[in-house]
């Protein structure tokens, strides 16, 4: 039985509501989808809440999955939407509250240079530490390939806001990477 056939069988069993198949599907994709949830969340606890809610939606709506596209892609979309819905109530605050306090972080301290000395976990922490609004736009644009028009519709903001949030997110991350670099140098020295 190929992996594709196996996955089809798991999906069909999940449609039938078989708990064992649901468990298999969860084990197979939990870590991958948790990575997405972590990017959209402030911490692991919040990410796990999103993961749980997302998987419940997946299992309930799996009968609606058309086997035309990628199943993993379909699940990722559900996770992203769940993450957005999870923070929807706070979204309007994201785009107003943090601008002034973050102005100082938006002055670019250094030119960005690619450096392999950063672990994935360190970079994930940087993304998680982005202000909520920046984080949403950055994730949607960079990782999930949405356009500014789509992001604006999803978040209920203007395209201009989406663009400016993305620019600020980049600057923020650039500075944070610089700070991280400085910290490492200090430790070494």
């Amino acid at each position: 039985m190929t992996s594709e056939t196996s996955e089809i069988k798991i999906i069909e069993d999940c449609i039938s509501g078989k708990r064992r198949a649901q468990s298999k599907l969860y084990k197979k994709y939990a870590n991958t989808l948790l990575g997405i949830c972590l990017r959209y969340s402030r911490n692991k606890s919040e990410a796990e809440d999103v993961l749980q809610e997302g998987f419940i939606k997946i299992f309930i709506n799996i009968k609606n999955f058309r086997k035309e596209g990628s199943f993993e892609g379909w699940m990722k979309r559900i996770m992203v939407n769940t993450a957005l819905l999870n923070s929807r109530d706070n979204l309007k605050h994201y785009f107003h509250a943090d601008i002034d306090s973050l102005e100082e972080n938006l002055q670019v301290k250094s030119e960005f240079e690619i450096n392999d000395n950063y672990s994935a976990k360190e970079l994930m922490n940087l993304v998680q530490n982005l202000p909520d609004g920046y984080r949403m736009v950055f994730n949607l644009y960079v990782f999930d390939d949405y356009t500014h028009k789509e992001i604006a519709q999803m978040l209920g903001v203007s395209e201009g806001t989406s663009k400016s949030q993305l620019a600020r997110a980049r600057k923020f991350l650039q500075n944070k990477i610089f700070e991280l670099k400085q910290k490492k140098i200090d430790i070494i020295s």
Partner: peptide, 12 residues
Amino acid sequence: FKDALSNYTEEQ
């Protein structure tokens, strides 16, 4: 960031 975190599975 995309290269580093697209397939991030370091946490369980």
